[in-house]
Design a protein around this nucleic acid. Sequence first.
DNA 1: AACTATATCGAGACAGTCTCAACTTTCCTA
DNA 2: TAGGAAAGTTGAGACTGTCTCGATATAGTT
Lengths: 203, 203
Amino acid sequence: MDTGTAAPRRRMRADARRNYERLLAEAATAFAEYGAEFSLEEIARRAGVANGTLYGHFPSRRALLEALMGDRMRALATAGHGLLTHPSPFAGLTAWADAAMAHATVYRGLGSALMQAIEDETSELHTACEAVLAAGEGLVARARTAGEVRPEVTAADLYALINAAAWAGEQSSRQQGERLLAFGLAGLRTPSTPAPTDHGATP
Amino acid sequence: MDTGTAAPRRRMRADARRNYERLLAEAATAFAEYGAEFSLEEIARRAGVANGTLYGHFPSRRALLEALMGDRMRALATAGHGLLTHPSPFAGLTAWADAAMAHATVYRGLGSALMQAIEDETSELHTACEAVLAAGEGLVARARTAGEVRPEVTAADLYALINAAAWAGEQSSRQQGERLLAFGLAGLRTPSTPAPTDHGATP
DNA sequence: AACTATATCGAGACAGTCTCAACTTTCCTA
DNA sequence: TAGGAAAGTTGAGACTGTCTCGATATAGTT
């Protein structure tokens, strides 16, 4: 497990580590500018290394993108744990979903990678995804116990909802994405509950 | 308006029409086989025409894909109109959503194009999308009048939900997509309603 | 200082997108 | 039905991007 495609394993040589970090930094810049479709060739050029060096560190575009997202994902998982003590289980879940969607929105175009990383154990992001999923599961379980969400709701449902809403937000408008998230969350609720916490789906 | 990028306008020359249709047929085959990422070069080769001929008919991959989806979209709009007489407004809406999602699932990878075509008036698909949206609006309006969905729900919400669910289905599993759709539809409902028509989100 | 594992280099094979000037075909009309 | 203009086709080639690999350079060790 964790066949780190590009992670700094053991101990890298000093020059290797420097290049690794430069590449990652340039990738972050390029990503912010162009989204996920930047040219790998250009990243190498901007980082001042040869083409092959990039491929040495990151065998594929996806490996590079995954390395880029790892930290954020872990932060999200941590945030989820913090919200376990929120007074209202469902409100906590909602707050986390909002944060997660904000995250997914920044990483526009990568929702696909996020969704697939769950199933793909060879992915660099797999463990990070599992951590996020575990955090989600904690929140869902708590809300379920409190009778605030339908019993059949899983963390995977929540995860899918968040990513799908973020995707919709990218495709049309941010608001549309947020509306979708709001409706989706409403759909997770136990049917009879008359909605004590309004999430704000009203335009 | 309707600056058909590749539509058979006026009258095409016999050879042009033949090539146009061959290209479309090959594209359909390739799409079924590889999804939206097939090589345009290969389509031309398979259709027995030169590279440039393809670009003459379809200036971009997207134009080709759009031409491919037009018919289906129109069929979807028609189906929506038919469901306006369904005994239960919400059930009609649900049935249509299911059909629409099945459609979006077949055209995997094209949800993005579908979502963007609404806003992009230069898209070949724009009018088809508007027709679908109008059909959705009819169903939503009816359910709204019957008090079965929240007053703030729009056809755009429904459209976004369907496409997002289809996307989720592509990314992880078909069932996950269906679950998301079910939860989303539940979220569109008027909160107090105890759910007369169960859509089957339970695993 | 010599050695070796570890990295980097960069040319080049390959695949795809897209353009355009020369050429060919269709079809209209006289 | 011959001739010519408009419409369409062709395919080489410019370009961009991905990825590989043998030659070469360097860091860290003894």
